[in-house]
Simulated scan of single mutants.
Amino acid sequence: MMFSVAAIGVNTFGFSYANAETIVKIGTAGPLTGSSAQSGKDDERGVQLAINELNSRKLVIAGQPVKFQLVSVDDQGDPKVGVNVAQKLVDDGVAAVIGHYNSGVSIPAARIYNDAHVVMITGASSNPQLTKLGFPYVYRLATNDNVMGGRIADYSAKVLNYKRAAVVDDRTAYGAGVADVFLRTAEKNGMTIVSREYSTDKTTDFKGILTHIKAQNPQVVFYGGYYTQAAMLARQMVDLGVNAILVGGDGICSPEFSRLSNNVLDNKMFCAQGGAPLDSLPDGKNFRSKFKSTFSADVDTYAPAFYAATLLVADAMQKANSTSPEAYSKVMREQSFTSMLGPVKFDDQGDWVDAPVTVYKLSGGNLTPLQAK
């Protein structure tokens, strides 16, 4: 713990005293390089904005003024790198980690944090396996794949009334998980899965996969993976004349999808994303404005969740009157919180109870909310 002279006061005997400032390190980890760097930077900015606000409040915890300090690391979206940077954050003495972005990174990194008794709370990683690990220091302020994959399958079958779907996933923990849920739910809804195909999170050429899919005449192509590869898939769908809509989970639900795909699937791409639409939240438009003025950039996808997660951790510290994870993590498990995203209560596995999810449609190059629950 670091101390510095932060304030001067006078005690009852008239002597001046120095009130020491406690530095609380907050880690954030995500892909700051590579194909998902836009998302990683967006998440980091959400955490930084929250820390700026916390420091402006000049909080006092356990009788000490507290200053929060960001420690950001690049996990490259790679599980092995993620474990290494998780250990680095632990060694740096962080009190909490807001991250990671990718489920495939969060799952192995979670053990590092839990063993060190450091709180980890992700605003994005959606694979259900993360919280099924049963780690008491791990939390998810996001909707899991069981909800998102199921919701977009329900929408495809019950609202759009499609009957035939092809499924492609990138074999990551996230992509495979959300694809499996879509497939199971689609079949329960009476849809026929005409093809199940596999790529990787680095695939750029989908023509072989799409040639096989086209012969099966699907109405829907579900892609389990992230927006960079999904955009390439979309462009190649059009090139090869695959006459189907593209659907997916939150991994493809990014404004970057439209730009990278040249918007070739306008009105033909649908995705499910955790949370309510930002502009529908009471403080959503204000958050968007503050984000833009601070970073000269627009909100991408999960900055609001990473922002809210950071503030929630600080709120738990205040309620526990301690910056020790052993103390404030118990508060996170037991109490309810008010956040920009809405009411938050965690279940006994660390999942957000009744986490909302919204279906979006790409329209006019923008993601337009259609259905929220």
Rank of each mutant, 00 (worst) to 15 (best):
Y226D: 10
D92T: 06
A29K: 03
I252R: 00
L370N: 01
A355P: 04
G275Q: 03
Q76V: 14
F68W: 09
I152L: 00
Q87V: 09
R151W: 05
I107K: 02
K188E: 13
G364V: 12
R171F: 15
A186W: 00
D239M: 13
K207F: 11
L362D: 00
S289V: 13
M332I: 02
D115F: 05
Y302A: 03
S195R: 15
L49C: 00
T294P: 07
D154M: 03
L367K: 00
D169E: 01
A308D: 13
N11E: 06
C253H: 02
F135K: 12
E53A: 12
D154L: 02
N146A: 03
Q236V: 08
A176N: 12
G9R: 10
V220F: 08
V178I: 15
P356G: 11
D239C: 13
A303S: 05
T211I: 11
N84T: 11
Q371T: 10
V220Q: 04
P369R: 12
H100D: 09
L160K: 13
D351K: 08
K158W: 01
F346A: 09
A320T: 10
P128F: 08
S289M: 14
T33F: 15
F15V: 14
D145N: 14
M237K: 03
S293A: 11
R235A: 10
Q48C: 06
A166K: 03
V221I: 08
Y227V: 12
D145V: 14
